[in-house]
């Protein structure tokens, strides 16, 4: 159904006619993935998850969110040339220092087993963080070809998994909060 929207939009784009040459006639979709996560609680990972106590030193905990759907245009048989991801992750109010690994998964199925059973599209870390709020950039210049092909469908499911290890001497509790995640999808298919 979401493809319908984009179909309409694309039809309108074609409707609009041609123009002087600039660019290469590609369709570029700037998808604000974060907007689909925001307000659902799935942009945030509380580690260790409530109601568990703070993570003791030299231990590790992992948690993930229930996959969430992101609507895409549906590129059919077109070639997805590039899928670029950029974003920002905040490590909020950690009670100790530690290291984190933050992984983003994409799959065509909403099943957590499928989403988290595949290789992560993007892994941030392992990266150390101090006992203070820190922003960690997320960046992937281009996803692997099999993952890019997932962006041809009209719906994509996003999973997020975070792992933290306590390298400090006191118990660690923190919140990994995504504050921005944007996918730029470049489709090598001449509209004009």
């Amino acid at each position: 159904m979401k493809a319908k929207w984009l179909g309409v939009a694309l039809g309108c784009a074609v409707l609009a006619g041609g123009a002087a040459g600039c660019g290469q006639g590609r369709a570029i979709f700037n998808v604000d993935v974060y907007s689909f996560l925001k307000g659902t609680g799935r942009d945030t990972l509380r580690l260790p998850p409530d109601p568990l106590p703070p993570l003791p030193p030299s231990t590790t905990v992992t948690d993930s969110v229930t996959p969430i759907a992101v609507n895409l245009p549906g590129a059919g048989s077109s070639i997805v040339d590039t899928v670029r991801l950029i974003g920002t992750l905040d490590v909020t109010n950690p009670t100790s220092s530690g290291t984190l690994t933050y992984q983003i998964f994409f799959a065509s199925s909403p099943s957590p087993a499928v989403v988290y059973g595949s290789a992560p599209a993007l892994t941030v870390g392992p990266a150390s963080f101090p006992a203070a709020t820190t922003s960690v950039p997320i960046s992937a210049p281009n996803l692997a070809a099999p993952l890019r092909d997932l962006f041809k469908s009209s719906a994509l499911y996003v999973g997020i998994r975070g792992t933290i290890s306590n390298t400090g001497t006191t118990g660690l509790r923190t919140t990994l909060k995504l504050t921005q995640l944007q996918a730029t999808i470049i489709i090598q298919d001449k509209i004009f």
Binding site: L10, G18, A19, G21, G23, G25, R26, F29, I191, F192
Partner: peptide, 9 residues
């Protein structure tokens, strides 16, 4: 015409 068309979604 060879415009890039950009959709913000």
């Amino acid at each position: 015409p060879t415009n890039d068309v950009v959709f913000g979604i």
